[in-house]
């Protein structure tokens, strides 16, 4: 399997990268981790004429808490998230998710920004970011702009990142108080795309009442999906078994999976219900710690 030929540039600054994107126009693609793009090019499903490799641009790789946000540089590798102390301490959802993304070699190169910017509802981070209420920073010729995650995914392989722009940072409201999060996906074997995946974030007051909730779903809709009705029923509730069951039920009703080799619609809705329930419970138990 061999890609069509293309031109390759490896700029060392963001300005340079953006200038090249403008120079080459629509046929240019950004090469981040490359572990989605290069296989597609080898299969000749994608044939960009210019690749702009942004791996040599310094300053795009970090995981830090700052200004009330968890900030993750777009070029941060999955493995760096997996190994980050802040993540271990407060954002276990990333531990859950990264373990299930492809395999260790892919996670050594695959980037968080790339996982989002690929615009694929089968990827895992979109649902995580939805649950965590992330904002995405996009840099273009005229500077930076910020897009809420709910406005980020716009279509099949299409996101708010316009041509000539680069996704540069992901910002997640920092964990505070009784905060817990969890992710799981059903997969046919390790490293597979999700049959169905659910990300959950729960914040509670000291009485155990839910003050904030986020539920994101993987690969059960054309776009990464926020389970809004599930969140609504959770927020303000006492997180009783009945409430959680209702949230799970809503998630399974509100998604719109399609049948494929991984399962039919019924099975996927069923999994969404079961996993939503389990992930809410897992997030709650983490929030209590």
């Amino acid at each position: 399997m061999i890609a069509e030929n293309f031109n390759y540039d490896a700029p060392t600054s963001l300005d340079e990268a953006i200038a090249l994107l403008h120079e080459y126009g629509d046929d240019a693609k950004i090469l981040a981790g490359g572990h989605s793009l290069i296989p597609m090019m080898k299969l000749r499903f994608a044939s960009p004429t210019h690749l702009i490799d942004i791996n040599n641009i310094p300053g795009l790789s970090y995981v830090k808490e700052e200004d009330g946000y968890l900030k993750i540089g777009a070029m941060t590798k999955e493995v760096e998230v997996e190994e980050s102390e802040i993540i271990h301490a407060k954002y276990q959802i990333f531990m859950d998710a990264t373990k299930l993304i492809a395999d260790p070699q892919v996670r050594n190169f695959g980037t968080l920004g790339g996982n989002l910017a690929h615009g694929d509802a089968a990827n895992d981070h979109p649902a995580v970011m939805i649950a965590l209420g992330a904002d995405v920073e996009i840099t273009g010729k005229d500077g930076k702009r910020t897009v809420g995650i709910d406005d980020f995914f716009q279509g099949f392989y299409t996101t708010a990142v316009e041509h000539g722009e680069v996704l540069t940072e992901i910002r997640i409201p920092a964990a505070s108080g009784n905060y817990g999060s969890a992710y799981h996906k059903a997969e046919r074997k390790v490293g597979d795309y999700a049959t169905a995946g659910v990300a959950a974030m729960i914040q509670m007051d000291d009485q155990g009442r839910c003050t904030k909730a986020g539920i994101g779903l993987t690969n059960v809709s054309p776009l990464p999906l926020r389970a809004s009705r599930s969140e609504e029923v959770l927020i303000g509730s006492d997180l009783s078994e009945a409430v959680i069951a209702q949230a799970a039920q809503y998630a399974s009703e509100d998604c719109s999976p399609s049948e494929d080799l991984r399962g039919n619609v019924e099975y996927k809705r069923h999994l969404v219900s079961v996993i939503t329930k389990r992930m809410i419970n897992k997030a709650i138990s983490r929030a209590k710690k």
Partner: peptide
């Protein structure tokens, strides 16, 4: 025997509800 196949069989014997 995949989980999906088992789910369908368990629907057929009434363990899981059929929704469609």
């Amino acid at each position: 025997v995949t989980p999906f196949k088992l789910f369908k069989e368990l629907q057929n014997v009434g363990y899981f509800k059929k929704t469609t």
